[in-house]
């Protein structure tokens, strides 16, 4: 039972990080960033390169390695996010049909990106050294491994930090303002272009964090971004694009559903259960769960 909950929580926190990135980008700049899979992989490879360099220098574990892995992954993804922004966001931002064209542009980037990874890193999966060690804590009947625990804790901390920062800082205020009313934001001196790039960098960093931690179990490969992208998409969709609480709840539901289905039904049914849940949510709340929360608040 505990194992079930833990694995659900791990999945939820990882997918949640990716989904919040997507949701956040959509709400503030109105662009569906479907290159999030590319950004995800970029973080994984950045961490891989860091690990390589460190191993060559003779460091294979310890805090330098662990923290460096996390930071390099986040930095790699943030840079990838800025790259996507400078190609798909800045040139198209105030042109006709920005939404559709931005969508297609990010899709094209994701197509190119996968091939570039393939060219530079080859098709094999690359493992990352363990960040949180390999131990295990026994709780009652089940247990939880260090990496699972670490993933949950770090994801929660990071998410809280980002939300707190959004709540209190000036840049956060500007971003929230832009989500609510882009015209009003322009009037109070918020530059859509600068803030948009900032948003892309932050959601990239969140994605990179998820990438490094998921790479603990699934490794890094050119196509490893596809699964997180699709699940992230449907979570952000079910959560209501732009709503952080909605996304967190949707991530929890999806994580739980995936863990339950894999355990009691069959692994092959997981996609259909997820899809069914999301369709159900959307049929009753076309704007996702976030819409529900907003209704209650009002």
């Amino acid at each position: 039972m505990i194992e079930l909950i833990i694995s659900a929580a791990v999945l939820a926190s990882m997918y949640g990080l990716v989904a919040i990135g997507i949701s956040f980008t959509w709400a503030s700049i109105g662009m569906l960033n479907l290159a999030q899979g590319f950004i995800f992989t970029a973080g994984g490879y950045a961490a891989y390169l860091y690990a390589q360099t460190m191993t060559n220098l003779g460091i294979t574990e310890g805090p330098v390695m662990s923290i460096g892995l996390l930071i390099s992954g986040m930095a790699g993804s943030a840079i990838a996010g800025l790259f996507v922004g400078s190609i798909a966001f800045l040139p198209l931002q105030d042109r006709a049909n920005f939404r559709t064209r931005g969508l297609i542009a990010t899709l094209a980037i994701s197509l190119i990106g996968t091939q570039l990874w393939l060219i530079f890193f080859g098709p094999q999966s690359k493992p990352l050294p363990p960040i949180f060690g390999t131990g295990r804590i026994e709780i009652g009947s089940g247990g939880v491994s260090y990496s699972q625990l670490g993933a949950i804790v770090i994801a929660t901390l990071m998410l809280t930090a980002v939300i707190m920062w959004m709540r209190s800082s000036r840049a956060g205020l500007q971003m929230r303002a832009m989500m609510m009313n882009p015209l009003g934001a322009a009037v109070v001196g918020v530059s859509v272009r600068v803030t948009g790039m900032r948003v892309l960098a932050i959601s990239g960093a969140l994605t990179g964090l998820a990438s490094v931690m998921l790479a603990q179990t699934f490794f890094v490969s050119p196509t490893s971004g596809v699964q997180p992208l699709t699940v992230g998409l449907i979570i952000s969709l079910a959560g209501g694009l732009g709503s952080i609480p909605g996304t967190v709840i949707a991530a929890a539901i999806v994580g739980l559903a995936e863990a339950l289905t894999a355990r009691y039904l069959a692994q092959s049914l997981v996609p259909f259960v997820l899809f069914g849940i999301v369709v159900l949510i959307l049929v009753f709340r076309p704007r996702g769960l976030g819409g529900l929360l907003e209704d209650v608040r009002e």
Partner: peptide, 9 residues
């Protein structure tokens, strides 16, 4: 539209 607004403001 609005690209220069933040600077002007």
């Amino acid at each position: 539209v609005g690209r220069k607004t933040p600077g002007i403001v």
